[in-house]
């Protein structure tokens, strides 16, 4: 089917003919002015305040094994937990220790065209992140599998301190994220709705629990 591109472009040209353009297009490389007011709180504390206000959870831990202990404490013994490849590669001690008490499934067990129902049955997912934003308590993930983190009722995000940025200004730069990847997802607290009489309910289609663990090791 041929589209209406030329017709629409001609209509736009016609309508704008003779009108003054508000500004020349500003160069994408023009320096950004920060619109974020500096927070008195240190970034991690601010991140935690914001996330916890939404019903999420953030903790700063010394060692990877502390994170493993935390995840075990916050899941049932019979839980099946999905571990993203980026976590398995970067946080070996965490994964090694967690595998002793929980049933883990790894990203590298799945190929394209995997069974969505199997992934939907996982009780929790553990992912890394591309960045965290203190201003809003947001984690940004960029993964090779979108569904485990979107479907699991419980989402653990393992973060290195250096991934924490103060504000959205640092996130929306033209160099942010892996340009070759198809997507970036920003997650700010649990999935939620207020569609019934404006009463807040957490955990609609996405994770009900979002637990972010900063590792200082």
């Amino acid at each position: 089917m041929t589209d209406d591109r030329e017709k629409i472009f001609a209509a736009i040209r016609r309508s704008l003919r003779g009108t003054e353009r508000s500004d020349a297009l500003r160069s994408p490389a023009s320096p950004l002015t920060s619109v974020h007011r500096e927070d008195p709180e240190p970034p991690f504390r601010k991140f935690r305040t914001e996330l916890e206000a939404l019903g999420g959870f953030a903790e700063s831990l010394k060692y990877e094994t502390d994170a493993s202990k935390f995840i075990a404490e916050h899941t049932e013994p019979a839980s099946s937990i999905f571990i993203y490849d980026q976590v398995a590669t970067r946080f070996r001690s965490l994964v090694g220790s967690l595998s002793e008490s929980r049933r883990l499934r790894f990203g590298n067990e799945f190929a394209a065209g995997y069974d969505k129902r199997e992934v939907a049955s996982f009780d929790a997912a553990v992912t890394g992140c591309a960045a965290c934003v203190a201003e809003t308590g947001t984690v940004v993930i960029q993964t090779d599998m979108r569904l485990p983190a979107a479907l699991a009722p419980k989402l653990f995000v393992v973060v290195e301190q250096k991934q924490l940025v103060a504000s959205l200004d640092e996130l929306f730069t033209d160099t942010f994220g892996n340009a070759d990847a198809s997507n970036l997802f920003m997650i700010t607290g649990p999935s939620r709705t207020a569609d019934i009489e404006k009463q807040l309910v957490k955990g609609v289609h996405g994770p009900r629990d979002v637990l972010v663990l900063f590792i200082n090791e």
Binding site: E50, L54, G107, F110, A111, A112, Y114, K116, E135, T136, T138, D144, M145, R146, L147, L168, G177, A179, D180, A181, S182, N183, L184, F185, M186, I187, T188, G189, P190, S191, R192, A194, G206
Partner: peptide
């Protein structure tokens, strides 16, 4: 819209799945 500093999800979609991705 809802009095939130940021909505729970913002999807930034650039295209269909790439060769390196297993879903999408």
């Amino acid at each position: 819209a809802t009095g939130q500093k940021l909505t729970s999800y913002v999807s930034l979609i650039r295209g269909p799945r790439t060769d390196k991705e297993k879903d999408g």
